[in-house]
């Protein structure tokens, strides 16, 4: 804030025109701010949000079972907070990636049930918990696939190289909605008779196919940034091709690609909203179905502002988390 006011002072002192412009803009911002605040507090009817908070979070999940997605979201949030604080104990820090991977089977178990919990059909999954499930599942599946594709594109085998390149380039040329559409309508056509894959899993499959091509390009960027001398040094130490890839190339490529991968994760989180027009009732889908309810008809602005703030909050949180991670990885680098 001090910097901000100092900047204003500096800007004001440059010349009169700039000063007047600044004042005019500040006036407009002030008026806009007062007008918006007035609307938000007095004119807006927030019932459409406040009455339906459980719907936004869990969709049509059975009411007495809502603690399951809630527990999952809470465990994810607390894990994020732990990651953000960065525990001092080394074993705890080392097990963090494993804990993150473990949240996925935990989430699937809590949502679908079985093994003592009552089963819940996937058509009852919805709201924020479905959005998070789509994002996390697709991301965790797409990461290894993306690494394979990136390595394939760098491969010395011409066939593997060509195939990976064709896959990556064609996936990146196609709009996401076409891929999702493929997932919903075409995958059943390619399956043998009697075999059916659930809608949610088909969506996750399509997201994985799509995102892995983008992740592959980001990781390729990381791989190319590693100097050749590293590979030579590793070879001199007697590491074989697999060891070089596994211990030298991939960890460094992932670290270099981390900012780009964060953007992919944030993009994926936002893009899961496309499933709202392809038949899943995730966060945006809940908003749409509430707006179709006669009780809340015409409450577009309230619902959209609410949804935008939820998306904004989560995306910003992911960005903060990733920036923190980048910083920590960078510190490790200087320690070596």
């Amino acid at each position: 804030m001090i910097k901000f006011t100092r900047n204003i002072k500096r800007t004001l002192s440059i010349n009169l025109f700039n000063g007047l412009l600044t004042l005019a803009i500040l006036l407009i911002i002030g008026l806009g701010f007062i007008f918006t605040l007035n609307w938000l507090i007095f004119s807006a009817n927030w019932k459409v949000v406040t009455l339906n908070l459980p719907l936004y979070a869990f969709g049509s999940f059975p009411v007495d079972q809502r603690w399951r997605p809630a527990l999952w979201i809470i465990s994810l949030l607390s894990l994020s907070v732990i990651t953000l604080i960065g525990p001092n104990r080394k074993w705890l820090r080392k097990s963090l990636p494993l804990a993150w991977i473990a949240t996925l089977p935990l989430g699937i178990y809590l949502l679908s049930g079985g093994l003592g919990l009552p089963m819940v059909m996937s058509r009852h999954w919805g709201g924020l918990s479905l959005t998070i499930l789509l994002t996390e599942c697709s991301l965790l599946f797409a990461l290894p696939l993306g690494i394979f594709l990136a390595l394939g594109r760098q491969s010395e085998l011409p066939l593997v190289k060509t195939l990976s390149s064709i896959y990556i380039d064609s996936m990146r040329a196609v709009p996401l909605i076409a891929v999702l559409f493929f997932g919903q309508l075409l995958i059943p056509l390619f399956l043998p008779i009697g075999v059916e894959i659930d809608r949610v899993w088909r969506a996750i499959f399509a997201f994985t196919l799509f995102v892995s091509a983008y992740i592959a390009e980001d990781i390729r960027g990381g791989l190319q940034a590693i100097p050749n001398t590293q590979i030579e040094a590793a070879a001199t130490l007697g590491l074989n091709q697999f060891q070089i890839t596994h211990f030298i190339l991939i960890p460094q490529a992932l670290r270099i690609a981390l900012p780009a991968l964060t953007n992919q994760a944030i993009g994926l989180f936002q893009n899961t909203s496309l499933m709202a027009i392809l038949g899943l009732i995730e966060l945006l889908g809940i908003g749409r179905s509430l707006l179709a309810n006669p009780e809340f008809i015409g409450r577009y602005i309230e619902v959209y502002i609410w949804l935008a703030s939820v998306y904004w909050l989560f995306c910003t949180f992911m960005a903060v988390l990733a920036r923190h991670l980048e910083k920590r990885l960078a510190i490790q680098k200087t320690n070596i």
């Binding site: 935008a308 995306c315 960005a319």
Partner: peptide, 14 residues
């Protein structure tokens, strides 16, 4: 930040 941290689909509907 407003544009980049919210889904395009939501913006279009808005």
């Amino acid at each position: 930040t407003l544009i980049r941290q919210t889904p395009l689909l939501l913006q279009l509907m808005f």
